[in-house]
Nucleic acid binder design. Sequence first.
DNA 1: TTAGGGTTAG
Length: 534
Amino acid sequence: MNPLRYQFHRASFIFHNHSRSPNFISSTCVCMISTLSVTNLIQDHIRNGNINDARQLFDQNPTCDIVTWNSMITGYIKNNQMQCAHNLFDQMPVRDVVSWNTMMSGLNKTKEPHKLYQFFLQMIRAGVIPNQFTFSTVISGFMNAFDVLVPQLHGLIVHLGLHSNVFVGSALMRGYTRLKDNEALHRVFDDVVVKDVSTWNALVVGYMELGFTVEAQVAFDNMPEVNIISWTTLVNGYIKNRKIDRARSIFDNMPYKNVVTWTAMIKGYVQYDNHIDAIHLFILMLKSGTGPNHFTYSTLLDACAGCSTFLLGNQLHSCILKSGLDREVVVSTALIDMYMKCGDLEAALYVFECMETKNTVSWNSVIGGCARHGLANRALCEFEKMIESGAKPDGVTYVNLLSACMHGGLVKEGERHFNSMGVRYGVKAEMKHYSCMVDLYGKSGELEKAEKLVKDMPFEPDVGVWGALLSACGLHSRYELANGLENLAHDYPTIYSMLVKLHGEKGEWSRAVEMRNKMMETGARKQKAGSRTD
DNA sequence: TTAGGGTTAG
C-alpha cells in the first residue's frame, strides 16, 4: 500500500478510538467535505472515461473514503482493466459489500465463473452479508458453470428476505429455466412483488426454453407492457420450438423491428437450413432501411456457406470491408468458413492471415477447412501454429485434426494427437473422436486396431462408431467381423442397411435380402441424400 | 459507489 495512504488509515483508526475534542471534530468535518468533493471529481473523471485522471487524483488524496475506493474499482472495470481493479481491491484497508459486489460484477463481465465463485466464498468467510446486488450478479455469473447452486442461493435469498427484489427475481427465474424447473420458475415470478417488463420477459423466455409455447404466449398476452425485447423473445421462442411459420407471422405483425429482431428471424431460417428464405429476408431488411451489424453478417455468411452461394458471400465480404466489421473475429471466422465451404481455399486462407486476433474457433475453421479440402499436412501445420500462438485447442480442433489425418491416411500422426489431447491440453476424448480414430484405422486397413479401440472405449459406442467399423469391413472385405456386428442392428437399424450393401457386394444375395427384410421390420428407412447431415 | 431481458462464427 502507498505509505501516505497507510498513515492516513492509521490516523483514522486512532481518531475513531479516542475521545474527540471540538477542534478535532471541526478539522475532521473539513476533511470530510474535501473527501466528498474529491470523490465527486473522481467519479466525474470515471463517468467521462478519464480513468488515468481519476487515478492521479486518487493517489494525490490519501484521505479517500471507501466510496472513492469502490468508485475507482468501478472505473477500472468499466474500462476493462480487471487486473488494476483487482490490485486496488487487494490494497483496500477495509472492504464493504459494495467492494465485493463491484469485483464480482467485473468477474461476471469477463466471464470467469470459477473466480467469481471463489470471490463469493471469500466474501461470506469474511463475514460480509450479501445483498440484492450480490445475488443478481452471482446467479447470473454462475449460469452454466454452477447451475446446481441456484436452489441453495434461493434458500439464502429467502432467509435474507431478498426474494421479492425485481433483479434477484429475474436472475433466479433464468437460473431455474436452466435447471428446467417450471414450477420454481413460476413460484419465483409470483414472489416478485413489483414486476417490471424484464420480469415478464424472463417468464416468456423460461416457458419458451422449456417448450411451453402456449403458456409463453399467454404470459406475453397478459403483459402490462411490452417492449421490443419482449417481441424478439417471443419470435425467438417460437423459432427454438421449431414453429418457424408462427415466428414469421408474429415477426410480420410486430409494431416495430430493429436489427436484433431481423437477425433473429434470419437466423431462424438458417438454423433449419432454409437458406434461401434467410437471404430473401435479408434483402427485405435492407429495403426496410435497417442496417446489418456483425451479428447479421455472421448469420448471412452462414447461410451462404449452407447453400454455397459464393457470389453473395463475396458481395457480403465487400460490404463487411466497407463497414469495418471485418475486425470482428466472429465475422472473419464466418468469412473463412463461407469461403472454405464455397470451395475458395485461397480466399479463406487470405482472410485468416489478415486477422489481427484469432481465437480457437478461427483456428478450427482453418484446420477443418484444410481437412475438408484434403490438405492433411497443411491442417497439421496450422495446428502447430495454433499451439505456438497460444490458442487453446478444444474438442472441435481435435475432430478436425483427426479427420485431416483420416483423409490423409496419417495413422501415426492421428495416434499421436489422439493420445496426447487429454494429457497435454485437457481435451477429453468424446464419441466423435473415437469415431474419427476408428475411421482412420479402418480406412488404413488396420482393422484389428479399430476393433480393439471400439472394445476399449470408456463408453458405449454409438451408431457413428459402429458405422465407421462396418464400412471399414466392407472396404477391406472383412465379412466375418461385419457378421459379428449383426446383433447390434436391432438397436441401430442403419447397420442393417450397411449389411445389405456388404452382402450385396459379396454376392450373398439371400443374406442381403434377409438383412433388408429385417431392416423393413424395424421400420428403418434409408436416409435422404444431402450434402449436410447436421 | 454495486445488479437483470432479445441477435453472431468452427
